[in-house]
């Protein structure tokens, strides 16, 4: 019995080693097939956009395209800023103060990705119960800070990475 066990052990080792090498090899062969579906180099290259803010009047929202998605740039009025700041955080499903969603010293400029955090429709500006955006797909309401207030969307409109290149222009991405 003892010799039989010894023989089996060596064979077992070979089986396991072969299977392990085979599994790693298969995974290595499959990975390119999966990874080819991720964004390619040309898509990644388009990843930043510069926008001139001078033509945007107070109270106006413009939509620009960034990475194939709409980005809303809202030149907010005093009233809109106050509305956003007066809202107690406790009333928000995804609590975040307005100050954290804009750049300091540029409180009138709200820049958000125009993609509903529910299932990706483009919300309509200056609509809904909170003077911000309303998503027609399944009825989500966003406020003047782009924060979710009511409806199925779980999160606030995303603030993309952007910076002020000068006082009147920003670079998104």
């Amino acid at each position: 019995m003892a010799t039989a066990t010894a023989g089996t052990t060596r064979r077992d080792f070979l089986y396991i080693a072969t299977a392990a090498v085979g599994a790693v090899g298969t995974a290595a062969a499959v990975w390119p097939l999966i990874h080819q579906m991720n964004p390619d180099a040309s898509v990644l290259a388009l990843a930043s956009t510069e926008v001139d803010l001078t033509p945007i009047a107070e109270g106006q929202i413009v939509t620009v395209k960034w990475r194939g998605k709409p980005v809303f740039i809202s030149h907010r009025t005093k009233k809109e800023i106050e509305e956003a700041r007066a809202t107690p955080l406790a009333q928000l499903p995804d609590p975040q103060p307005d100050q954290e969603r804009v750049k300091e010293g540029h409180d009138q400029w709200l820049v958000v990705v125009g993609v509903c955090t529910h299932l990706g429709c483009v919300p309509l500006g200056h609509q809904g119960d909170y003077d911000g955006w309303f998503c027609p797909c399944h009825g989500s309401h966003y406020d003047t800070s782009g924060r979710i207030r009511q409806g199925p969307a779980p999160a606030n409109l995303e603030v993309p990475t952007y910076e002020f290149v000068s006082d009147t222009s920003i670079r998104i991405g």
């Binding site: 991720n38 898509v43 194939g68």
Partner: peptide, 17 residues
Amino acid sequence: VTWLWGGYSVDEPTLKR
């Protein structure tokens, strides 16, 4: 979702796959 799209939104790569 990014993997399904092949980008940051539904676009040409999505249509092709």
